[in-house]
Design a protein around this nucleic acid. Structure first.
Lengths: 157, 157
DNA sequence: GTTTATGCAAAACATTTGCAGCCTT
DNA sequence: AAGGCTGCAAATGTTTTGCATAAAC
């Protein structure tokens, strides 16, 4: 889990390493991703936020940047099933990944860190021969806040 | 894990219970889902296959049927991240669910049954107060067949 | 100076919806 | 007979792409 300025430099150096140009648009998108590393933004969200620092950026550039960062393993892309993808920076250099706790009532997204999957991955390798390189685990349910409130909290976007 | 004919009757009776009509289109879609319960079909796939038995069916009807079956808990809908949803019948009456092993080389999808998630869900409840009602776990990696073949097998669609 | 990256607009794509007519109940 | 269900086509919403221009190297 790198601090923000190291994470930014890390991303820039990976881009350079792979002969990608460092444009102000890319810097601006990376900035938004880093400043919102705890949120789970859609491309549209990222687009809107990036416009604050770089008003002329186009949505297509945001998509292309996110695709590039994902291909370099710098960003994780995932979906809830609501039709739009969400993105988040990969905050650590290693593979360990937190899991998402998605509240079906308020739409909020929490996180949970855990290493029990290692056991499952070993069991998979042993029983099926499948070599696991990555995983995606999401839990759906009711967050503690929505459990506390009887019924009024149904949209906290 | 019900046998096919019982599963079919189970689905039909749930439909009746909820006052939904049993149309030949719905029967045809259910038939395709049951006959391909080990595959992970997209809506388009299901549409094409259903046309064999019921050539006049429309794609919208397939989507509406899948949505209905999903709302009744009879079908699971999930996504790999390639932009289209996949569907599979819920073969057992209970909540237990297998996880997907997605080969990033050949695109094949295996399955793995496991109950270790229960432990994680308990840990989540204890540490965060989040009440888990469902989960989705997918593993990405290389299947045993692709590991065996040095490099030629990259598209077995 | 080259080559890549950008912005715009149009295209592509999966999915949803409106509506008149049909079919299950 | 009445209502839900269907097929078609149009609409929607997200993501991708073509192309001329602009910017990074």
């Amino acid at each position: 889990m790198l601090p923000k300025n190291e994470l930014r430099e890390h991303i820039f150096s990976i881009l350079r390493e792979h002969d990608h140009r460092l444009t102000p648009q890319r810097e601006a998108v990376v900035e938004v991703l880093i400043e919102n590393s705890d949120a789970h933004l859609s491309a549209e969200n990222i687009f809107m936020q990036t416009k604050h620092n770089y008003p002329d950026i186009g949505l297509a550039t945001v998509y292309r940047t996110l695709e590039l960062l994902e291909s370099l393993g710098l960003v994780h892309k995932f979906e809830y099933g609501d039709g739009q993808s969400r993105y988040e920076v990969n905050q650590s250099a290693d593979d360990h990944y937190h899991h998402h706790l998605i509240c079906v009532k308020c739409g909020g997204i929490g996180e949970f860190k855990d290493d029990l999957l290692d056991e499952i991955e070993h069991a998979i390798a042993k029983e099926t021969g499948f070599r696991v390189t990555d995983h995606c685990l999401r839990f759906f349910g009711i967050c503690s806040e929505c459990q506390a409130e009887p019924g009024e909290n149904s949209d906290d976007d």
